[in-house]
Computed example of a mutant assay.
Amino acid sequence: MDIRTLFLAQTGALAAIATMLWVARSAADERNGLKTWTWAVACQALAYLLLAHLKWWPMPLSTLLGNALGALSVALFFLAIRQFLGMPIASRRLALMVCVVSGAAAASAILEQMARANSPASMPSLVPTIVNGFVYGWLQLLNALALWRKPKPELRTVQHIVALLYLGMGLLLPVRAAFILLTELQAGQFQLSEDWSEAIYLFGFIYIIATNLGFLQMCKLRAEAEVRLQAMTDGLTELPNRRALDEAMAGALGTAQRQRQPFALLMLDLDFFKSINDRFGHHTGDRVLATFARQLRAGLRAQDQAFRYGGEEFVALLPDTQAAGAMVLAERLRSQVACAGDASQPAISASFGVAIWQPGDSAEAIFQRADRALYQAKAAGRDRVVLA
């Protein structure tokens, strides 16, 4: 196998990837780690170019710079993955790793130059391969562990595939280093058996392409999930919106019909909200809505969901809840959100309509009952709870 040609092919592939990532960069890439990943790919491309030992590069200099850039690229990949996952970053450990590997490369370049001065036919030093194998292998295993742990549902499949690739490389590198150290130290870096060389370098080429595609796919899936979340979230209150409520209601109805477990629907309306806007202004009205949403979310149980239905109307879904429990929770919410006003602060209260799922109910039927109960609460003087 022509290792130099393979390294040049990897250089070309990585340079193309880095160029496309740089051209397509955006402000979002600061948060998801893709900008750091782009720099890592560029450093790796230069490293392979230098380690191909082309004629116009002096051998000691190319070995030194190639391994230093390789160390930097591994550190940047490590950093990018942790930026993507939102994990804390041990910058001192990363700097130490780069210094150790770069130092080993420098030492090996000096030893190689001395050996060539005494014997021009001597083989390249194996120090970088052995040191890099253990250090890089450890970092790849850490990457695999970080990617495997608790991925979000929309990322699970791709993230686990990338984690398995890192696991494979994390096991292969130290095994190769140990093999060279124990049995092939005198043979030279590229004098392993043909089967070993082909398997190692072929997997390395696949690994480079697959991990780059995998990281890009992870960023794409996250961006799509964030866009979907924004489309399902009310910008002012940060509660799920009407579209999200429709999906949640469909799920609640399906669960209730399968398991015959009733759920409760609360419809809430801020009392006299138009007068709040008229007297205190729309800015204060928006602040009241946002505050009310936070209080509503804080007052619900962990399994409950709150939504902004529209305007000053809100909805809460209470799974596996009977009428008595729904009334207790609604009364508690009513008292928690109530606030006496003064000259500078509007009075706040809310009316509640409660409906309980019944076998055969459609979404429209349960909403109509909750809406009628809410209308009755408002007609009876507001700031009260009525069960349909």
Rank of each mutant, 00 (worst) to 15 (best):
A163V: 07
R149K: 14
V158E: 11
L145R: 14
P124V: 06
V100M: 09
E154V: 13
L126V: 12
G137H: 06
F78I: 00
V135E: 08
S122H: 05
H160T: 13
L85M: 11
T129I: 09
L155V: 01
L167F: 15
W148Y: 13
R93F: 05
M97H: 10
L172S: 09
P174V: 02
R92W: 10
M123T: 12
M123Y: 08
G137C: 08
P128Y: 06
R149G: 01
A144C: 13
W138V: 10
R149Y: 07
S102W: 02
P124A: 09
V100F: 04
L147K: 05
A146K: 01
A117N: 12
I180S: 07
L141W: 09
I180W: 04
Y136M: 11
V74D: 01
S73K: 02
Q140L: 14
T157A: 13
I89E: 08
L126M: 14
L142G: 05
E184H: 15
L94M: 14
A90Q: 11
M87Y: 12
L76H: 03
N118A: 15
L155N: 06
G170F: 08
F84Q: 08
Y166N: 13
W138P: 00
A146M: 02
R93M: 11
L96W: 12
V98S: 03
W138A: 15
E112W: 13
P128N: 06
Q159I: 09
P120Y: 07
S73A: 15
C99Y: 00
P153A: 14
A163Y: 10
R92P: 00
L96Y: 09
G168K: 07
P153I: 03
R116Q: 13
L79R: 14
T157L: 14
R82V: 03
V162S: 04
F179T: 11
E154H: 15
A90Y: 04
P174L: 04
T157F: 14
L94R: 12
L182C: 11
L139T: 05
R156G: 01
L79Y: 10
W148E: 03
P120N: 07
G133H: 07
V162N: 04
P174Y: 04
V100I: 15
L142R: 14
A105T: 02
P120M: 04
R149N: 12
G137R: 06
L181K: 03
P174M: 05
R93W: 12
Y166E: 12
L171K: 05
A163N: 08
N132G: 15
G86Q: 08
L145I: 07
G133M: 02
N118C: 03
I161H: 05
L79W: 14
A75I: 03
S91E: 10
L181F: 12
I81F: 07
F179M: 12
Y136P: 00
M169Q: 15
R176H: 03
L111P: 00
L79K: 13
G86C: 09
T129C: 05
E184N: 14
P174D: 06
Q83S: 05
I89V: 15
I180Q: 13
L72R: 01
L72C: 13
A146E: 01
A178C: 11
H160Y: 07
G103F: 03
V158T: 15
S91D: 06
A117E: 13
I110T: 08
M169K: 04
R116L: 15
E112I: 00
P88E: 10
I161G: 02
L145G: 03
